[in-house]
């Protein structure tokens, strides 16, 4: 039952996997690059260097892998297109969802690629105080340093958090169909450390 246009089309042979087991998500893209921390060494002014480092860090913070679960509302977003999470899930009392529909109802301890479901040992939403969605990089930077809004972490603890926390690390191993955060976690950690070492200056709000 070829359509008219179909019949007119040249014969085509397509070779490929017969069908996807789960959703036909695009293949994972390699994340964009991050500049190494060392490449900022040439910026003489310490404050300028610090701000430049944070601007580079921002490529990660504002990436869908991170900002999707640091939402401004109670609802996370999902996917590279950052659409509202379907089904409608919420942060809940402790960041782990609503009674009857916790994050763990669907998200396991690891990614499960056959179903396209990401996972981690403590899959959760960031607290409302740590919302990044819709904020400028300068605002996020101030937030990150504010003990009232960063889980009472000093700067060293922040660096440890972003280099050791499994859910942060997940950003570079997000499973099939999702673009990883830019660069590598190691590069990201070096940038964070360099930013702290340079005085943790923030871009203009």
């Amino acid at each position: 039952m070829p359509g008219r246009a179909g019949a007119a089309a040249a014969a085509a042979l397509l070779l490929g996997a017969a069908s996807a087991l789960a959703q036909s998500a695009p293949a994972p893209q390699p994340g964009a690059d991050l500049r190494p921390a060392s490449s900022f060494a040439g910026i003489a002014d310490q404050r300028d260097r610090s701000v430049a480092l944070f601007n580079e860090i921002g490529k990660v913070l504002l990436h869908p892998r991170c900002v999707n679960c640091h939402p401004a509302t109670e609802r996370p977003r999902q996917g590279d297109a950052r659409r509202l999470h379907q089904p409608m899930v919420v942060r809940g009392k402790d960041g782990h969802g609503a009674p009857g529909l916790a994050c763990a109802t669907c998200h396991g301890k690891q990614n499960f690629d056959p179903a396209g479901i990401p996972g981690d040992g403590h899959w959760a939403l960031a607290p409302a105080a740590m919302a990044w969605e819709g904020r400028t990089l300068g605002q996020i930077c101030e937030q990150l340093k504010d003990l009232n809004r960063n889980g009472s972490r000093d700067l060293a603890a922040i660096v440890r958090h972003v280099t050791a926390d499994t859910l942060v690390l997940w950003g570079w191993n997000p499973g099939k169909g999702r673009e990883p955060a830019p660069g590598t976690n190691a590069q990201f950690g070096e940038l964070m450390q360099a930013w702290v070492d340079s005085g943790a200056a923030c871009p203009a709000v």
């Binding site: 409608m88 899930v89 919420v90 609503a98 009674p99 009857g100 669907c106």
Partner: peptide, 19 residues
Amino acid sequence: LLKEIRKPTDRDIDLAMTG
């Protein structure tokens, strides 16, 4: 849901059952 919330509101029901 009822094990966690004895007397759920419509909103509680929405949030638990939307999946």
